[in-house]
Amino acid sequence: MDIVQDAITWLNDPLNWTGPDGVLSLAAAHVRVTLLAVLLAAVVAMPAGVWLGHRRRGGTLGVVVANTTRALPTLALLTLFASAGLFGNTATVLACAVFAVPPLLTNTVTGVGGVDRDVVDAARGLGMSGARRLWSVELPLSVPLVAAGVRTAVVQVLATVPLAALVGGRSLGSIVVTGFGTQRYGQVLAGGVLVAALCLVAEGLLALAQRAVSPRGLQPAPARSSRRPTPVAATADSGSD
């Protein structure tokens, strides 16, 4: 309980929130590294996923190859980059980009390749070229799955970026690493809570964004109440004849 109390005390100290090493500055750096890593992964994974999904051939092999990168621990990649002279946020962006490729590629291939063949054939029957079918039919219908892949990648990278502190980078992980170094375990817990809170906020915002960009016909229907209306009993006129 002392650690919990120390964490609450640390979080309630305004001095820990301001300045170049404060929570707000480190959170901004954390988000910036995440966005750069996901953007770099998207530049590589999403065009490849669209191409494989549109061709409907080779997608499974591409996804399997991409998923093999999950066997590479991000910390091991950071160590390799550090041994090659890459430190700080640069190494973190590269390592987390590798980590973000599988969900982006998998969901893009599944989303584009999973469009109903009857819909694609109907577009072909209307005289649409392959490129027009892709941009006008397949991509719009694949938006929910592609957006889900982006959402997964962002949250995973947000949870991984704290490792940047181990190679000289700036993120909320710096709070955790400093706490371990000074044996202030309340600070360690506070840093973990901040990372978890950031992931939860991002998850919620991206869920709303995913719903907003999905075509209305593909959005889940709102739940209807199962309660039946109570019949209104008719009152008989009791007037005398």
Results as ranks from 00 to 15, higher is better:
Ser83Thr: 15
Val137Trp: 00
Phe81Ile: 13
Asp6His: 11
Val33Asp: 06
Ser238Thr: 15
Leu94Ile: 15
Ser136Glu: 00
Ala196Ser: 11
Arg228Phe: 11
Arg117Met: 03
Val188Gln: 07
Ser226Leu: 13
Val146Phe: 06
Gly239Leu: 14
Val44Asn: 03
Asp118Thr: 09
Ala100Met: 10
Asp6Asn: 14
Leu39Asp: 01
Leu145Tyr: 05
Gly173Thr: 09
Arg184Val: 08
Ala122Tyr: 00
Pro140Ala: 10
Arg55Asp: 01
Leu94Ser: 01
Gly85Asp: 02
Gln183Leu: 11
Gly181Ser: 12
Gly125Cys: 14
Gly111Val: 01
Val155Ser: 13
Leu15Ser: 12
Ala165Asn: 07
Pro229Gly: 06
Gly22Arg: 11
Gly179Gln: 03
Pro103His: 12
Gly22Ser: 10
Ala76Pro: 06
Ser225Ala: 03
Arg184Cys: 05
Ser225Cys: 02
Val161Lys: 00
Gln156Ala: 09
Ala209Gly: 13
Ala165Arg: 06
Ala37Leu: 06
Ser238Trp: 12
Leu205Val: 15
Phe81Tyr: 15
Leu11Asn: 05
Ala190Tyr: 04
Gly111Asn: 01
Asp121Thr: 10
Ala97Ile: 09
Leu166Tyr: 13
Phe81Met: 14
Ala197Ile: 10
Ala82Trp: 14
Met128Val: 00
Pro73Tyr: 07
Val65Ile: 15
Val154Ala: 09
Ile3Asn: 00
Leu134Asp: 00
Leu104Ile: 08
Ala41Gln: 03
Ala82Met: 14
Gly59Lys: 10
Val119Gly: 00
Gln5Pro: 00
Arg224Gly: 07
Gly53Ile: 07
